[in-house]
């Protein structure tokens, strides 16, 4: 079943990029390439359940993305102000922040979201906590208030 979705996705990708459905030769070559890629992916065991989340995850994801995008805009505004300021007002520091997400997917999303929020970059994922580089003291405190963790946990939802 998963491989069926995989092949359909590949075929869709090829069709969108080439768009020349009247050219028989291209279509045959495309089908051969798709078969080859599916074979190699099967050998490497690349197609697992992590690549094909269920419907609920998609719905929660689409609710999370606008929140994330707004954070990215805020983050760029923050960087913008600091970079063009002649005094370069930064006081970088390393902080450790604990996390309690349960799945690998949730942890990765959380780490990447911290990277995209104002003034903080996740450097390393340790046992139960992140190592974070913060541009300012306020940014370092902002990571620990937990509002983003609540958002990520809502995204995680009922995934076991």
């Amino acid at each position: 079943m998963r491989y069926l979705i995989f092949v359909v996705l590949l075929a869709g990708f090829f069709g969108l990029l080439s768009g020349q459905f009247h050219n028989g030769f291209l279509m045959v070559v495309g089908a051969l390439c798709i078969a080859l890629i599916a074979l190699i992916s099967a050998r490497m065991a690349l197609v697992d359940e992590e690549s094909y989340p269920d419907l609920g995850t998609w719905v929660r994801m689409s609710l999370y993305v606008p929140y994330l995008f707004w954070q990215i805009v805020l983050s760029n505004w923050d960087v913008f102000k600091r970079v063009w300021d002649p005094a370069l007002p930064v006081s970088p520091q390393l902080v450790r922040a604990p996390f309690s997400t349960r799945t690998a997917f949730g942890t990765v999303t959380f780490a990447n979201s911290i990277t995209l929020t104002p003034g903080t970059v996740t450097i390393e994922v340790l046992e139960g906590e992140f190592l974070i580089h913060a541009l300012t003291t306020e940014a370092a405190d902002g990571v620990k208030d937990g509002s983003m963790e609540a958002q990520v946990k809502r995204l995680e939802g009922a995934i076991k």
């Binding site: 960087v79 370069l88 970088p92 970059v121 450097i123 580089h133 541009l135």
Partner: peptide, 15 residues
């Protein structure tokens, strides 16, 4: 402009 590698990450990665 940023003073070191980690601070450069902030501007490069986000913008």
């Amino acid at each position: 402009r940023m003073p070191d590698f980690y601070t450069r990450l902030h501007t490069a990665g986000k913008s």
